[in-house]
Design a protein around this nucleic acid. Structure first.
Lengths: 226, 226
DNA sequence: TGCCCCGATATTGTATGCAATATGCAAAAA
DNA sequence: TTTTTGCATATTGCATACAATATCGGGGCA
């Protein structure tokens, strides 16, 4: 047996099945029986089982003992909870960053934020989205709590499919950049409460701007993204 | 094959291996090879593998592809991160509870807090610890965000082995109860900022009182608990 | 002596078969 | 017609065999 990379079959299955669920190839609530998946991806049931358990722990599927796995159906209410949890976590990181960032970290954040201005002005959605990830990661890191950062990053990743169109809303980029500016200013001023508030507002606004998509089914979302 | 309950072998393995790790039967860093575990628990490698993956996702073990699993060694720094993350999450829940708890929830929290006074006065560590769990769970629930509550509860469970002795510190019970009182008062007054601050202080104090144990190895901790 | 390569062994990753349970459907009873 | 029971089928849980890789120790070489 030849391994093309150092990932196991199960590793790749986790990625592939995730993608297919996100892309809407499997609808929420749809059964994922092991044999079909094994045939579809050309492997045996063993790695399929492992992948399903991992996807369950990340929330993408539900597995019920002896009754198989189904694609987790995220209700709008659950989605709102996830967004809310992420907003709180981000706000907490921002507050901690305002308190604890080193001078170097503060300068880097300031510089990076400034470097995003041209992307916002040029309405470069993809470029801004990528930079946005870095921006938020810098704040996670500035909280100086790896576990908190891990939780926040995990939530962000899980919500990614529901956010993909957010930066395509007309005028969203400059507004996001301005909101970032408020957060950055608060962090630089070591104003913990304001950093918290500003970040909470920023994430919540992004969420609101995307809210109408939240209730749509994946297949529809897919069409929206395309 | 006869199943005595509706749990699978893997389910029971997760519980058993967790307990053995917490009890110090396996030291941090120790290798957990699948065959030995399978023999030890009288099952085949398949459920052992599944259990190890699940333990990995809960942070108790590290699995490296093709290189086996080891008991996760939690450094004091990592432990401090986990405690810090939990404190922040609890504080966030307290803040949300202050804002959003229903009148009924507020009254129940107040009543429950009052009912803990006798336990604190009687220095009933076990009783207080059990009630303490309920107290904090009520606040998680009051945040009205199931996912946030889930994360907080998960962290609390993961840190349990490092906290077991906390209520045995002399005078800790009445102090904890008093700190709870500050949190409850803030929540009842819908004072979000104070609820946050009071809870952060409470959890951090509990942590501090237990800090010297944090650096000890599990075997030693086990002795301390006994 | 110290280092590197190579092969024997150990251990993990995957496939497959069997046992146990869940599911669906048809027939019978109310 | 509706509900229930029993059986056939489908699917999961587990065990085991095989494939691939990691680990460790010895021999060759500088």
């Amino acid at each position: 047996m030849v391994f093309l990379d150092d990932r196991t079959r199960a590793d790749r299955l986790v990625a592939d099945v995730s993608q297919d669920i996100i892309d809407g190839a499997f609808a929420p609530g749809e059964r994922l029986d092991e044999l079909s998946l094994a045939e579809r991806y050309g492997v045996s049931r063993t790695p399929v089982r492992e992948a399903l358990r991992r996807l369950a722990s990340s929330g993408l599927v539900d597995v019920r003992p002896r009754r198989g796995a189904v694609v987790a159906s995220i209700t709008p209410a659950k989605l709102a909870e996830l967004f809310g949890a992420m907003a709180e976590l981000e706000a907490t990181c921002a507050r901690l960053a305002a308190i604890g960032m080193s001078p170097l970290e503060r300068r880097r954040l300031e510089d990076f934020h400034a470097s995003m201005a041209p992307l916002a002005d040029a309405d470069d959605a993809d470029g801004f989205a990528a930079a946005n990830l870095t921006f938020h990661s810098q704040i996670y890191a500035g909280a100086h709590n790896g576990h908190l950062a891990e939780i926040a990053a995990g939530l962000r990743a899980r919500l990614l499919p529901y956010r993909r169109a957010q930066f395509r809303t007309p005028g969203r980029l400059p507004r996001s950049h301005a909101e970032h500016g408020v957060v950055v200013a608060a962090i630089l001023a070591a104003d913990a409460a304001e950093a918290h508030t500003a970040m909470l507002r920023h994430v919540s606004l992004v969420e609101d701007s995307f809210e109408r998509l939240a209730a749509l089914q994946p297949a529809t979302r897919r069409a929206v993204r395309a």
